[in-house]
Simulated scan of single mutants.
Amino acid sequence: MGFKITIAGLGLMGASLAKALRGWRNAAICGVETDAAVLEMALTEGVIDSGYVLDETNAREALDADLVVIALYPRAALDFLRGYARCAKE
């Protein structure tokens, strides 16, 4: 299996980072978003390879990555860590 990068938050910072990482180590880039429309736009424009509106049913799959980047507002980042850190790859 190749290198997988998951980016939580596909706003200005997250989407820009995803674009900058395109092609690095032939990594698969996954996005995690709360807004399905933003996720669909990122998929359509080729910013990410796969994406999830994160919930308990898909968190393990979404966060099974070699690198997880949290590109969220500080409060949202804390909530994300509290809710999903246990689902991330060791």
Rank of each mutant, 00 (worst) to 15 (best):
I5Y: 03
A59K: 10
Y84E: 02
R25V: 03
M41H: 13
A36P: 09
L81N: 10
M13L: 14
P74Y: 01
L54V: 05
G14H: 04
R22D: 01
G31T: 04
L39T: 01
E61P: 11
L12C: 11
L72C: 03
I7R: 00
C87F: 15
V32F: 05
I7G: 00
E45T: 15
G11A: 09
L78T: 06
L67D: 09
A77F: 08
I5W: 04
E40N: 13
G83Y: 10
G14E: 05
I5A: 04
A36Y: 04
D64G: 08
K4F: 07
R82I: 02
M13T: 13
K89R: 15
A65W: 10
L54T: 01
D66G: 11
A59P: 12
G31D: 04
A20I: 03
M41P: 01
Y52V: 05
A88G: 10
E61S: 15
G11F: 12
I29A: 02
R25L: 06
V32S: 05
L81S: 12
A42T: 01
A18L: 04
A71F: 07
D66K: 08
D66S: 09
I70W: 02
K19G: 00
A20F: 01
Y73C: 04
R86G: 13
V47N: 01
W24T: 06
E40M: 09
A62K: 15
E45Q: 15
A71K: 06
G2D: 08
G31E: 03
E90S: 14
A65T: 14
R25K: 14
A59F: 06
T57A: 13
T34K: 09
R25Q: 11
K4A: 08
M41L: 10
G31W: 02
G51I: 02
G46W: 07
C30M: 05
P74Q: 02
F80H: 06
V32R: 03
V32W: 05
L17Q: 07
K89D: 03
A85Q: 12
W24Y: 04
N58A: 08
Y52T: 03
S50K: 13
A15F: 02
V47I: 13
R82V: 02
V32I: 14
T44N: 14
R22V: 01
A28D: 08
G9W: 08
L72K: 05
A8E: 07
L72W: 10
D79I: 04
A77Q: 15
R75M: 04
T34H: 06
A20N: 07
G31H: 04
R60H: 11
L10D: 00
G11W: 11
